[in-house]
């Protein structure tokens, strides 16, 4: 007969083990582009690196003009910008700062219009015969895994030859820094083929524009920041490109209008707890006391 003490011990171990997925579930998100999403479609890896570099997470755009000589990353915006927000961004850019907007839905066009830029994002399913993914399940190529060639040397494209994109849109206007090959098309019906009403042509995917004293960069694909893309082997060019993006004296990352800031459940609470050293120590102390008590009572 197994002693009750062993049963209790087993139960406690099982309960502790079951808490691990519970904790993971509560502290992670499945939202697209979310920095709390550790899956392929999240940006936890990119943001983990940003945090290590001391990037400032912006929750109120009104404050960004107070960061001179900085770079603001606005990745995958998904909500409307107020007039105040647009005014702040305009002041920020025209004041000599840099804005990098990465969007494939067209939501960012409000920002582009608001700051007086001429560059626009053309939403659509941009596809190309220059691709890097082959769908093993269907045995067909993925034309939306577009390989774009860098056409102009820039601070962000230095020594980068190609940028590998994932379901990108296109960019219209500005100085073209990277573009697709001639054999690219907007796959309007999504059949992953070139149809007669889908003409071939070259599309810009990364462009630069001077706005006031500042610089605007528009990238038509925020997916290159996701974990799935960051972890993909053999993407040295993308890694180098992301390094250039992160390499700024002061890096601001918008969290107020971006999908990267999306969270749910206990994530904000736990994130806040983990962000404070005192709280972190307190949590460790509580767990330690609990374990000590269980040992003292000879439960463990």
């Amino acid at each position: 007969m197994i002693p009750i003490r062993k049963i209790v011990l087993l139960a406690v171990v099982l309960a502790a083990l079951s808490c691990i997925p519970l904790y993971l579930h509560l502290t992670t998100s499945t939202a697209e582009f979310s920095r709390y999403n550790t899956q392929w479609n999240g940006t936890s890896l990119f943001f983990g690196d940003l945090e290590e570099r001391g990037a400032v997470m912006v929750t109120d755009l009104a404050g960004i003009p107070s960061y001179p000589d900085s770079r603001l990353l606005l990745l995958a915006p998904d909500r409307a910008f107020s007039a105040g927000d647009l005014g702040a961004i305009r002041s920020y850019v025209t004041g000599g700062n840099t804005l990098l907007l990465a969007d494939d839905t067209g939501t960012g066009n409000q920002v582009l219009e608001g700051i007086g830029a001429r560059t626009r994002i053309l939403p659509g399913n941009l596809s190309s015969l220059d691709f890097y993914l082959w769908d093993t399940q269907s045995g067909r190529y993925q034309p939306s895994s577009v390989i774009a060639s860098v056409t102009r040397e820039d601070l962000l494209t230095s020594k980068v030859e190609v940028i590998l994109l994932n379901k990108p849109a296109a960019v219209e206007g500005g100085e073209v820094l990277a573009e697709t090959s001639l054999m690219s098309w907007m796959d309007t019906n999504g059949d992953r083929r070139i149809n007669p009403d889908e003409p071939l042509g070259t599309y810009s995917v990364f462009a630069r524009e001077r706005v006031g004293d500042g610089t605007l960069y528009v990238l038509s694909d925020p997916s290159i920041f996701t974990n799935g893309m960051v972890q993909l082997p053999g993407l040295e060019n993308n890694t180098l490109f992301l390094e250039h993006v992160k390499d700024a004296p002061v890096l601001l990352v918008d969290q107020s209008h971006s999908r990267t800031g999306e969270a749910g459940g206990l994530i904000p609470l736990l994130a806040a707890a983990r962000s404070t050293k005192v709280m972190e120590l307190l949590m460790v102390a509580i767990v330690s006391i609990l374990i000590a008590y269980l040992f003292h009572r000879r439960i463990l």
Binding site: N41, N166, G228, M229
Partner: peptide, 9 residues
């Protein structure tokens, strides 16, 4: 928004 590169070659 994207395809999962981990399920592709």
């Amino acid at each position: 928004y994207h395809v999962n590169p981990q399920y592709s070659e």
